[in-house]
C-alpha cells in the first residue's frame, strides 16, 4: 500500500521573477510571478491549485518540473533538492515527474504519429528499451487511457480535443512517473469530454498510485478532483486546506469571494445566493500593493492590512492561511 504520509514533494521559499524589458535604455521591470511559495505534496494525494488568470499557476507547475529555473528557494523531490541538479541527473528524475498541458493539440508535435509522440519520453529517458518493447508499452498505455490500438499510426490533427488530451496523458504516463502536474487539463474541452477525462485521471491515479498536482481556474473542477486545495493570488499562497474544509469554512476573504462567484449548476441555489463580487480588478504583478496584496479588493481590509504583509500561518487542521484578520472573520458560506 502507498504510504500516504510521506512527503513526495516539498517546495520551500520558492520565488520566480520575470524581467520585462521596458525599452532599450530603461531598466527592465521585475514581474513577480511567484513569491515565497511553501507547501508539501504527500504521496498519493491530489493537490489542487486554483486562482485567477495570471496568478502564477502555470509558472508554479513549470518551476516544480524544472522547466523554468526558480530564482530562489528549493524544490525537494523525495528529500533531494532538484533545482541545482546537473542536466544528466535531472533527466533521470524526469521519469518520475511528468506534465499534462492545457491545449491538447498544441502540446502534440503535428509531424509525429501518435505512436511516436507517446514513445518520445521513452526514447530519451530510457534508451535501453528496444523498439519492440517500446511499441508494446505504447500500446499498453494507449489502452490504459482509452485509445484504440489502430490509432497508433495516425497524426494529431486527425483527432478531436478529448482524444488529443488522451494522447497527452499517455505520453505523460509512459515513463511510469510518480507525480504528474496537470496544467488545466480539461479547460479546453467540452463538458461531456471534460467529465470523461476527469474520470480517466481519477482511474489512472488509483491504478498506478499516482500523485497529482491539478491546476485549474475552475474551482468546481478542482474541488471535484482534489484532496487538498491551494489558493493562489498574485503569485502568493493565500490559503491551503482540505477540500471540504476550504468549501465549508474558508478562512481567507479571497477564497470566500471565489466560492461565492463559482457558477452553480443548480437554479434554485444559484438564485438564492448573493454573489459577493470583488471590487476592482487584479493589480498588475509588476506593481503590487503594499502589505496584503489582496487588500485593494478585500471587503474586510483595514488600515493595518496596508502595513504588514500577512505571513502564511499554520492553523488548526493542518491548514495554511495568509490573512491577519482570519481569526476575527466568519467567512462560512451564508454567513
Amino acid at each position: 500500500m502507498l504510504d500516504r504520509t510521506e512527503d513526495l514533494l516539498k517546495i520551500e521559499n520558492l520565488s520566480k521573477n520575470f524581467s520585462i524589458s521596458a525599452g532599450l535604455f530603461a531598466r527592465p521591470f521585475q514581474l513577480r510571478a511567484l513569491q515565497d511559495i511553501n507547501f508539501t505534496v504527500k504521496r498519493g494525494e491530489t493537490l489542487g491549485i486554483v486562482g485567477e488568470s495570471g496568478c502564477g499557476k502555470s509558472t508554479l507547475g513549470r518551476c516544480i518540473l524544472q522547466l523554468l529555473a526558480p530564482d530562489e528557494g528549493r524544490v525537494l523531490w523525495l528529500g533531494q533538492d532538484i533545482t541545482k541538479l546537473p542536466a544528466e541527473e535531472m533527466r533521470q528524475k524526469r521519469r518520475d515527474l511528468q506534465i499534462i498541458f492545457q491545449d491538447p493539440l498544441a502540446s502534440l508535435n503535428p509531424r509525429m504519429t501518435v505512436g511516436e509522440i507517446i514513445a518520445d519520453p521513452l526514447r530519451t529517458l530510457m534508451p535501453e528499451v528496444n523498439a519492440k518493447e517500446r511499441r508494446e508499452r505504447v500500446l499498453r498505455t494507449m489502452e490504459a487511457v482509452g485509445l484504440l490500438p489502430e490509432m497508433i499510426n495516425r497524426y494529431p490533427h486527425e483527432f478531436s480535443g478529448g482524444q488529443a488530451q488522451r494522447i497527452g496523458i499517455a505520453r505523460a504516463l509512459i515513463s511510469e512517473p510518480k507525480l504528474i502536474v496537470c496544467d488545466e487539463p480539461v479547460s479546453a474541452l467540452d463538458v461531456s469530454i471534460q467529465a470523461q477525462i476527469l474520470n480517466l485521471l481519477s482511474d489512472l491515479k488509483d491504478e498506478f498510485g499516482l500523485t497529482l498536482i491539478f491546476i485549474s481556474h475552475n474551482l468546481s473542477v478542482v474541488r471535484h478532483v482534489s484532496d487538498r486545495i491551494l489558493v493562489l493570488y498574485l503569485g502568493r499562497i493565500v490559503e491551503l486546506a482540505d477540500g471540504d474544509d476550504l468549501y465549508d469554512d474558508p478562512k481567507h476573504p479571497y477564497t470566500r469571494a471565489l466560492l461565492t462567484a463559482v457558477p452553480i449548476p443548480d437554479p434554485k441555489r444559484a438564485r438564492q445566493r448573493t454573489i459577493e463580487g470583488l471590487v476592482g480588478e487584479i493589480p498588475s504583478p509588476i506593481n503590487q500593493p503594499s502589505g496584503c496584496t489582496f487588500r485593494t479588493r478585500c471587503r474586510y481590509a483595514e488600515e493595518r492590512c496596508a502595513q504588514v504583509r500577512p505571513p502564511l500561518e499554520v492553523i488548526a487542521g493542518g491548514r495554511n492561511v495568509a490573512c491577519i484578520r482570519w481569526q476575527e472573520l466568519d467567512l462560512k458560506p451564508g454567513a
Binding site: R62, L65, L67, A87, R91, R94, R95, L97, Q98, I99, F101, Q102, D103, A106, S107, L108, N109, P110, D120, P121, T124, L125, G168, R171, A172, S175
Partner: peptide, 21 residues
C-alpha cells in the same frame, strides 16, 4: 508551442528538440 515544453519534460536535450521537434 507547448509540444516543445512537453519534449523538455520528457527529458529531451536541446539538440534532440531541434532535430526531432
Amino acid at each position: 508551442r507547448e509540444f516543445i515544453e512537453a519534449a523538455k519534460a520528457g527529458g529531451a536535450g536541446p539538440f534532440t528538440i531541434i532535430f526531432r521537434h
